[in-house]
């Protein structure tokens, strides 16, 4: 049976590719939204559902409402892109993008979707481009969640191996920040490993 485990080499390559993708995202946001932000070095780990739940609980504030946008992406490498912003950050984003003092709920939601669109397209497109594969994006959906219970209860009962890629995006001058989670599981991990193997071969050929 072929191993689905990631070696440290695989993780190093993925980390490097994510760095490139994040840089790409920052540049795109600066270009499209005229907002100059930074992205932290991504954290990459392989976990199970309980581990993911714990990780999210640590990363997302438990005492606030958050806008959680989830967008699926499909293809040889598929998964879920999750972008989490606190209420305050989302309101600041709505205010910034729609240029109104008090943005409406619809303004905020649309602004959050718009930023998620840009982040997911740039990060995932760049990552898949580097891995020589195509990606399809599905319409995102946003919900306002109280606390940090982002994973449904029944989901934690299923056993999945998950790759967690997470980072923090910040536009300090606009007081906007958010947590990005790129999650992929089971069969997709094997495919990602194969794509990275191909990339490694390509690099060392």
């Amino acid at each position: 049976m072929e191993s689905t485990e990631f070696s440290s080499d695989h993780l190093d390559v993925l980390r490097e590719l994510m760095n490139i993708a994040m840089g790409n995202a920052t540049a795109s946001i600066a270009d499209l939204l005229q907002a100059f932000g930074t992205m932290h070095i991504p954290h990459i780990s392989i976990s199970d559902m309980d581990g993911l739940k714990s990780y999210i609980e640590e990363a997302v504030p438990s005492d606030q409402h958050s806008y959680v946008t989830k967008q699926l992406f499909g293809g040889v490498f598929g998964g879920e892109f999750v972008f989490v912003m606190t209420n305050e950050s989302a309101a600041n984003l709505g205010h910034y993008l729609y240029d109104v003092d008090v943005p409406s709920d619809a303004d905020i939601l649309d602004a959050v979707i718009e930023l998620t669109n840009i982040l997911s397209s740039t990060i995932i497109s760049r990552l898949t481009e580097e891995l020589n594969t195509k990606v399809q994006f599905f319409p995102p959906s946003t919900e306002i969640i109280s606390g940090n219970n982002l994973i449904s209860q029944e989901e934690t009962l299923n056993y999945h191996r998950i790759i967690i890629v997470s980072t923090v995006m910040e536009f300090q001058s606009h007081k906007i920040s958010g947590q990005i989670f790129i999650l992929t599981k089971d069969g997709m991990i094997q495919r990602l490993r194969e794509l990275i193997d191909q990339k490694l071969e390509e690099l060392y050929a």
């Binding site: 499209l32 939204l33 993008l97 649309d110 979707i113 669109n117 840009i118 397209s121 319409p139």
Partner: peptide
């Protein structure tokens, strides 16, 4: 907002979406 979305779509060569909720 619409023009910004169109611009994003064209620059990133990827679909963008309106919130439907």
């Amino acid at each position: 907002g619409l023009q910004r979305k169109i611009r994003t779509t064209l620059r990133l060569n990827t679909p963008t979406f309106y919130d439907a909720s």
